[in-house]
């Protein structure tokens, strides 16, 4: 549904987005990750046709956004960053306005407004002016606007920004459910959202894509992936470190005392082959192991190691 080819945007001499290519199909929810200023919003603005790309192109449902903007925009719903809305209107008026611009009239318009009001829990503020809404409600109002025409493609720029934990949960659920039938891109810098809602994630840094894969694939890139953590009783920190460090597939061991017990983590030499777990289990036979588990890898760790300049690592 969405094809992005070699998209580049220059602001002056600064490359805000630099040769970004990816595609999103129906049934996919793509998480767009990256530090602030990485080019997430700029990319989304180019996809939705708000700003023209310096080079490269975007096609939505087969329509080139630069050449056939109206046809492409019809297929898309867009929640801009910070969820702007006309403050002088009521929620009801605003949604009607959005529906009309989407070409909905009469009964169809009424139904569409009613549907999104229900989906986004806006009944209680329907006739309140947008100006007086709390941030969460304003956000949901703008979100409601983006899905009012039940679009095939949804572009959401930080859809959970400024929501409380319950609302965040709600919105993620909504995204996941809608993602079964639509192509969705959403940006976030909250990593847990990738697990909660995405089928695939892209990490973008300084305008370039630095990682692209399913959440599990990304996690596997973490140095934590495949590491074994265990809590042992009756041994000293040094002894644990020494014995585990001797394992053939262990790259590094960290261990610390924990009230008479030792908490140790062994990192694997080769990620993801599961060899380390087997070795650790063998080596610790006869130990008093209270607890152990194999780490799946941590997204925040991957995120940090990919997006931080080398000097700060």
């Amino acid at each position: 549904m969405i094809q992005v080819e070699n998209l580049t945007k220059l602001f002056g001499t600064k490359r805000a987005v630099d040769g970004v290519s990816f595609s999103v199909e129906r049934g996919e929810v793509l998480g767009f990750l990256g530090p602030n200023g990485a080019g997430k919003s700029t990319t989304m603005r180019m996809i939705t046709g708000f700003i023209p790309p310096t080079s490269g192109r975007v096609r939505v449902g087969g329509f080139d956004v630069s050449e056939q903007p109206i046809a492409a925009k019809r297929l898309m719903g867009y929640l801009p960053e910070n969820a702007p809305a006309y403050t002088d209107m009521t929620v009801y008026g605003f949604l009607n306005f959005a529906a009309e611009l989407r070409g909905l009239r009469g009964e169809a318009k009424k139904k569409a407004v009613h549907r999104v009001v229900e989906m986004c829990f806006l009944e209680s503020v329907l006739h309140q002016s947008v100006e007086t809404l709390s941030k969460g409600y304003r956000h949901r109002t703008c979100f409601a606007q983006s899905i009012i025409h039940d679009p095939d493609v949804l572009v959401l720029d930080e859809p959970t920004d400024g929501l409380d934990p319950n609302q965040k949960h709600e919105v993620r659920g909504l995204i996941r459910r809608m993602g079964e039938k639509k192509a969705i891109i959403f940006s976030t810098h909250i990593l847990e959202e990738v697990d909660a809602a995405c089928t695939r994630a892209i990490i973008i840094d300084r305008g370039k894509i630095v990682a692209n894969g399913t959440p599990d694939q990304l996690r596997a890139r973490s140095e934590w992936a495949g590491a074994v953590t265990l809590r042992v009783q009756g041994l000293s920190v040094e002894a644990v470190k020494e014995q585990l460090g001797r394992l053939r597939t262990a790259a590094k061991v960290i261990a610390q005392g924990d009230g008479g017990r030792v908490l140790a983590t062994v990192f694997p030499r080769n990620r993801g082959d599961g060899e380390l777990t087997r070795e650790v289990l063998e080596a610790t036979r006869g130990w008093r192991v209270e607890h152990w588990h194999t780490e799946e890898g941590r997204l925040d760790d991957v995120f940090r190691s990919i997006t931080m300049p080398d000097t700060q690592r």
Binding site: P69, K73, M76, Y78, P80, E81, T87, L101, Q145
Partner: peptide, 14 residues
């Protein structure tokens, strides 16, 4: 200033 321009101009209107 409010950012609604982004909303308006990404609607299917010229």
């Amino acid at each position: 200033r409010v950012g609604t321009m982004e909303l308006l101009l990404t609607m299917p209107i010229t």
